[in-house]
């Protein structure tokens, strides 16, 4: 595991998977979007409005997965001082915030025609809004300190504390009665069961796959640019040091 603490080693693997995840993202979007938005059948109750669900559930899936990655990376950073884990968490958080925002907005757009309201303060919606604020808090804390190491540590602690919200979001629809419908996937004795018909489940899976691959591809790009930025910072610093040693004033 500590082998991956080395950015060069880590990026060798990341760069190797990049063409695969990027290619899969393109293929899944090209195949999935027309099915999800055009050719799949309308729902018997919701009609065409069901198409919002393909974006909504995919975004919600990513917001949960990415928070898991941010929290896991933060834990590895706090415990083992694993710099790449921290970099992955930092690079993922803005995407997590965007997908949480997307899940909230698409949920509201669906809620108005179906429930009759954009927003209610039920357990699922409220805990999801809290997740959105956790992401924003994490991003803000990262940059809130002069000493970036301190900021990273404070943000990582916030990410870990916030991880108690993940099971709350997931089980909110089972623990309490909510306006939000229960999960469409049920884990039971004989495996995973879904209350969604196959004709609607297929585009949903395609979109969830496309979103996930998109996240992984963008994550590699963000890691690359973060590492390059760090290299430039280091080069500047050593240039300043050289200038100082030679006796020339560093502007």
């Amino acid at each position: 595991m500590h082998r991956f603490a080395n950015p060069t080693q880590f990026m060798r693997i990341a760069n190797a998977i990049y063409p695969w995840v990027a290619g899969l993202a393109v293929i899944l979007f090209v195949v999935g979007l027309p099915i999800a938005l055009v050719t799949s059948p309308p729902d018997y109750q919701q009609g065409q409005t069901v198409r919002i669900m393909y974006i909504h559930v995919s975004s919600a899936w990513l917001m949960m997965m990415i928070y898991g990655i941010v929290a896991g990376g933060s834990a590895a950073f706090l415990i083992w001082r694993h710099p790449m884990a921290n970099l992955v968490a930092k690079a993922s958080a803005p995407m997590g915030a965007i997908f949480t925002g997307l899940a909230l907005i698409t949920g509201m757009l669906w809620g108005q025609p179906m429930w009759g309201t954009f927003w209610v303060w039920d357990a699922r919606l409220t805990s999801t809004l809290i997740l959105f604020f956790l992401y924003l808090g994490y991003i803000a804390l990262n940059d809130a300190f002069e000493d970036s190491e301190r900021g990273d540590r404070a943000a990582a602690i916030l990410a870990l504390v916030g991880s108690v919200n993940l099971p709350i979001i997931h089980f909110s629809v089972e623990w309490w009665n909510t306006l939000h419908q229960p999960s469409i996937m049920k884990l039971s004795g004989d495996g995973v069961k879904s209350s969604v018909d196959g004709a609607i489940l297929l585009p949903l899976f395609l979109m969830m796959g496309a979103f996930t691959m998109y996240y992984l591809a963008v994550l590699v790009l963000r890691l690359r640019s973060e590492l390059l930025a760090a290299k430039i910072r280091n080069a500047r610093m050593s240039q300043v040091a050289v200038d100082a040693a030679v006796g020339q004033p560093a502007e």
């Binding site: 919701q46 069901v50 429930w115 009759g116 419908q181 229960p182 999960s183 209350s195 018909d197 004709a199």
Partner: peptide, 18 residues
């Protein structure tokens, strides 16, 4: 003062429901 519809977790095309 307000009535909201609760949607269930069953999704299916009209033909399947029929």
């Amino acid at each position: 003062s307000e009535v909201l519809a609760k949607h269930d977790e069953n999704y299916m095309p009209r033909e399947v429901a029929d």
